[in-house]
Every structure is written in structure tokens, then in C-alpha cells.
């Protein structure tokens, strides 16, 4: 087989054995220890600088190079309706374990990076744990709010509790009392909650669709009992989903009844 590279080949004659040249080139390249994304053992402290490099490779296409949620792919993710990628400079985060209006903890940010957001952001578990911590360190440099204070996680009431019929019934009563069905509907396929569709807006003014609670795996903030309880108590800042912490006072443990009812909506 003759490899012809004329008229651009820069030498006077073609290589004598181009096949071997190609194999040698491949072997040379594959000899580099690059088939691993492991973090060097000397990296023990999260580095915002390393995080920045990772951010530019993995996150900037959606969140924008400056973190304002205006990356080149951001518009097409939610052209005329929510969600758009988070504006990381605003200091406002949906997925937190902290009270509404607070910053997220490092673990909150790490959790979102690790599990992703069903439907919209893939899990970056494919990055090493240390790489994700580098990213968290960089994300916190994007908003000045992180320099002003540190948030504390809101402790969840003791639970979860068994999903007995009584608990589910109490949860349903709470669901009605807290007016959850205005957005989420009460019955499977009921048009009741859909009345608000098209009327709910997010912080950017984009139309937002309430979560279909019968589709468990679509819950953006996770669908374990603790995830659901956390979402109810802390709310999703920047969206109409408010914190129900005050509404459940002085018995916040009732949240587990509500969790049991919500989980029952998607039971077979």
C-alpha cells in the first residue's frame, strides 16, 4: 500500500513505510498515561483555579463563561419556557438544604453536581470526587454572596416515618390545607392543577411547568423521602415553589406525612 501525500507532503519523497509510521504514532500517543481522570495524590484541598479549568470544559456551554446562565447552549435548553441554566452569579440556588433565601452549602452544590438534575443537567459523577470539589470551590467564586457568609443546613425533623394509610391520609389533608393542588393537582391526570400551567413564571419571567408529582424520577431535587422533605421545607428559590417551613410550624415532623402522600401519588 502506498500512502501518497502529494502535493503538500513537505519532504522530497513520501515516507518509506507509512503504515509503520502511523502505528508508531498511535503507540506513542497511547503510551501517555492519559486513560485516567484520577486526581493527583498531592491534591488534597479544593482549588478554584483547577475548578475554573473544569468549568470551562464541562459547564460553560450552558452556564456561560461568566456563570450568568447565558452560555451558547442556554437558550435552546429553555427557549421560551423554563428552565434555563442557573445564573451562578446571583447567589440564588434552587437546590439547597438551607433556609429559603440562603446560600447553599458546599455539600448542596456537590450533591447537584453528583446526581445532576433529571431532564436538564447530567450527573457529573463521571468526574472524580476531588474534581467536583474543585468545581464547587470555583462556583463559589462566581457570586460575591459566598464571601459574605456561610449557610447552615436546616436539620430535617426525625424521620422518615412508615407510610401507613393513616399517615398518607394525614398527608393528603396537609396537601389540601397547604393548597398544593393549585399547582400540582391532586389526582393523576386531573386537569385541576393544570389550570395554573402557563401562568407560573420563574425569576426570568419564563413560563414554568409545575412538577408532575406522579412521575417520581422527574423530581429535580431528588425523589428520596429526605429529598422531598428538604424540598418542601426549603422551597426552590427563584421559582413559585415556596418554603413550607413556617406553614408546618410548630410541628415540622408533619412533613413526613406529606412526603408519604406525595410518594403514594406515583405508587403503582
Amino acid at each position: 500500500m502506498r500512502l501518497s501525500l502529494e502535493p503538500i507532503w513537505p519532504f522530497n519523497r513520501p515516507p518509506r513505510n507509512p503504515g509503520a509510521l502511523a502505528v508508531a504514532l498511535s503507540l506513542t500517543l497511547t503510551a501517555f498515561p492519559a486513560f485516567s481522570a484520577d486526581v493527583s495524590p498531592i491534591e488534597r484541598t479544593p482549588s478554584a483555579q483547577t475548578g475554573k479549568a473544569l468549568y470551562e470544559q464541562a459547564c460553560a456551554f450552558c452556564h456561560g463563561i461568566g456563570g450568568q446562565g447565558d452560555g451558547p447552549d442556554a437558550f435552546y435548553l429553555g427557549p421560551y419556557s423554563a428552565p434555563r441554566p442557573r445564573d451562578l452569579t446571583s447567589g440564588e440556588y434552587k437546590f439547597r438544604s438551607t433556609p429559603s433565601g440562603s446560600l447553599p452549602t458546599d455539600d448542596d452544590l456537590l450533591r447537584t453536581l453528583t446526581v445532576g438534575i433529571p431532564g436538564y443537567m447530567p450527573s457529573f459523577q463521571s468526574l472524580s470526587d476531588m474534581d467536583r470539589r474543585h468545581l464547587v470551590a470555583y462556583l463559589k467564586t462566581l457570586s460575591p454572596a459566598f464571601q459574605e457568609g456561610k449557610a447552615q443546613s436546616l436539620p430535617l425533623p426525625p424521620g422518615p416515618i412508615p407510610a401507613t394509610p393513616e399517615s398518607i391520609q394525614q398527608g393528603r389533608a396537609l396537601y389540601v390545607a397547604l393548597d398544593c393542588m393549585t399547582c400540582h393537582s391532586e389526582q393523576v391526570n386531573s386537569p385541576e392543577g393544570l389550570l395554573t400551567q402557563g401562568k407560573l413564571k420563574d425569576r426570568r419571567g419564563l413560563t414554568l411547568h409545575p412538577r408532575d408529582l406522579t412521575n417520581l424520577t422527574s423530581y429535580k431535587n431528588g425523589h428520596s423521602p429526605s429529598d422531598i422533605a428538604r424540598t418542601i421545607l426549603t422551597g426552590l428559590d427563584g421559582s413559585p415553589m415556596a418554603s413550607y417551613l413556617e406553614a408546618l410550624e410548630p410541628h415540622p415532623e408533619q412533613v413526613w406525612h406529606l412526603v408519604n402522600y406525595i410518594l403514594s401519588l406515583s405508587s403503582p
Binding site: A34, S36, A58, F124, S126, L127
Partner: peptide
């Protein structure tokens, strides 16, 4: 593989 990653989608 997701941009910036090299895990082969193993997760």
C-alpha cells in the same frame, strides 16, 4: 463522554 470527563460513561 460528557465534555470535560473521561469515565467512559461508566457511571
Amino acid at each position: 463522554q460528557l465534555p470535560g470527563t473521561e469515565d467512559g460513561g461508566s457511571t
